[in-house]
Each structure stands twice: as structure tokens, then as C-alpha cells.
């Protein structure tokens, strides 16, 4: 009993690193331009399908496809920003939500149209095998995915603190007027943040496809899941995101093994509501 529980917790914690990566993209978008993107989870779903498509068509492994899908999703992000989001910046937040909910429906319907409703998975992955630690088995694909996620999160945090563009994003997030006075072009910065935030879902999508299947409705789960991670972490703390991701992943796994496999989303949503009620600024947030 405890063995399976620990086993599940390990798996959940590793998946949680990918959740943190997805939430990092959302945090870039929400933290910088205060745009509520309901379609973020569906971008993960689209990334997973693109990975599936590329894997099926060319045989490129899911672990490597992010090299192709990352720029693709970046472009999609830019397109979405300039075509839709940019026009709603001066509108009330409900209009923004209406637009991104429209986008969410659009992406889901498109996925259903192209790939039909049944779940799809890739037959194999480059990363094979598993590692034994005592009596616990860890799938190599999960371990590598978690490691890559942590590395990418670390890389993004370096990008945000060391490069001019990254600093512009942080500056715009802290104080847009002051940033503008220092020569930050806010539209370019917003577009960059939106593109980058969307592109991160490409990496997450590729990693998820190494051990998971995809179906058109899973965007909702990833969407609310990443909002849950973000709510728990609060804005502006990258280590906080990682810790929250791991907590959410572990809680999900625990709910599944202790309660009911169908309860996985229930646990996440209850956690989300509790965090909102008790710690509206998140556990690690600074604003």
C-alpha cells in the first residue's frame, strides 16, 4: 500500500515538473500583460497533436520534435497576439476572456476536425526503459521529461535575468510606464512574452507525448491545472512555480491512488479553490 503510494507520488512529482513548465508559459503571459489566456491548455493539446503528427509522418522522436514545434508555436503565439490579443488590451477583462474562450473553442474544434475524437499516442519513444531504486520503478521517459522541464525553466529564468529582452519582459511586468520611459517597446515585449509563453507549451507537449496519449478535450485539464499551479506559486517566483508544479502533480497522483482514478481532476480543483481562499497571493508570490 505505502509502496504503491510512494511509487505514484514519485510519478506525480515528475509529471509535476512538466506542469510547472506549462504554468511558466502562462505566468509569462498573465504576469506581463495581465491577459487572461483561457486557451493556454489547448495550446498544450495542439502541441501534443503536432508532435504526434510529426512523429507519425517523419518518424522523428517525440523527445526531439520540440526543436521543430518550439519555433512553430512561437509563430502561432505571435499570430494570436497580433491578430487577437493586441486588440483587446484596452478592453475590459471580460472581453479578453470572451476572446480567449473563443480561441479555446476554436482550437478544440479544429483538433476534433483534423484528428477526430479518439485518443492518439505515438508507438514508441527514443527514451526507453526504466530505473530501479529500491523497490520503486521510474520510467526513463518521465525522468528525462522532468529533467528537461527543470532545465528549460532554469534556462528561461536565466533569459529573464540576463538578456535585454528578458529584462524588458520583467520590467514591463513590474511597471509598464517606467519600462516604456526606458525605451521598452511594450507591444514588442508583449508579443515576445506571448510567443515565448506559447512556445513553452511545445516543449511540454513533446515531453508529455513520450509517455501519454492525447485527445481533443484534454486542453481544459491542462488549462485549469496550470492556473492552479500559478495560483499556488503566485506571480514572479520561478522556484515557486517548480515547487507548486510538483505539489500539484503529487496531489493528483495521490488522489488517483487513494481515492478514485476519476478523482484526479477533483483533487486539483479542490486544491485550487482552497489555495485561492486561503492564500490568494500564492505561497511564493511577491505581488
Amino acid at each position: 500500500m505505502t509502496d504503491t503510494l510512494i511509487q505514484n507520488l514519485l510519478n506525480g512529482a515528475l509529471t509535476g515538473c512538466i506542469y510547472a513548465l506549462i504554468a511558466l508559459g502562462l505566468s509569462l503571459i498573465f504576469g506581463v500583460m495581465n491577459v487572461v489566456n483561457f486557451a493556454h491548455g489547448d495550446l498544450v493539446m495542439v502541441s501534443m497533436y503536432l508532435t504526434f503528427w510529426i512523429g507519425l509522418g517523419t518518424g522523428i522522436d517525440a523527445a526531439i520534435t520540440p526543436l521543430l514545434t518550439f519555433p512553430l508555436l512561437f509563430l502561432i503565439g505571435l499570430l494570436v497576439y497580433y491578430a487577437i490579443i493586441d486588440r483587446t488590451l484596452r478592453q475590459r477583462y471580460v472581453t479578453q476572456i470572451a476572446v480567449t474562450v473563443g480561441l479555446m473553442t476554436f482550437l478544440r474544434a479544429l483538433a476534433q476536425l483534423i484528428w477526430k475524437a479518439q485518443p492518439r499516442a505515438l508507438p514508441y519513444s527514443l527514451i526507453q526503459g526504466s530505473i530501479q531504486i529500491g523497490s520503486y520503478t521510474i520510467l526513463a521517459s518521465r525522468l528525462v521529461s522532468a529533467a528537461v522541464s527543470v532545465l528549460v525553466i532554469f534556462g528561461i529564468s536565466l533569459f529573464l535575468s540576463r538578456t535585454w529582452a528578458g529584462r524588458a519582459i520583467r520590467a514591463a511586468s513590474d511597471d509598464l510606464d517606467a519600462a516604456s520611459l526606458h525605451g521598452v517597446d511594450f507591444r514588442q515585449t508583449y508579443a515576445l512574452a506571448f510567443g515565448l509563453g506559447s512556445a513553452l507549451t511545445a516543449i511540454a507537449g513533446g515531453l508529455l507525448m513520450t509517455f501519454q496519449q492525447v485527445d481533443p478535450t484534454m486542453g481544459v485539464r491542462f488549462g485549469l491545472l496550470s492556473w492552479c499551479v500559478l495560483a499556488m506559486a503566485g506571480l514572479g517566483s520561478i522556484p515557486g512555480l517548480l515547487i507548486s508544479g510538483v505539489i500539484v502533480g503529487a496531489a493528483e497522483a495521490m488522489g488517483m491512488s487513494l481515492w478514485d482514478p476519476r478523482a484526479r481532476s477533483l483533487v486539483i480543483y479542490l486544491l485550487f479553490i482552497l489555495v485561492l481562499w486561503l492564500r490568494p497571493r500564492g505561497l511564493f508570490g511577491r505581488k
Binding site: T88, A98, V99, G102, T105, F106, A109, L113, K116, A117
Partner: peptide
């Protein structure tokens, strides 16, 4: 075309909201 109507419908929604 299954769910094609939703594609069109969501585009209409986005356009109205914009």
C-alpha cells in the same frame, strides 16, 4: 464534417467580441 460548425461558430464569437 464533424465539429466544423464549432470552428465557424468560435470564429464568429471571436469576431463579435473583437
Amino acid at each position: 464534417l464533424e465539429s466544423f460548425y464549432l470552428v465557424v461558430y468560435s470564429v464568429v464569437l471571436i469576431l463579435i467580441a473583437l
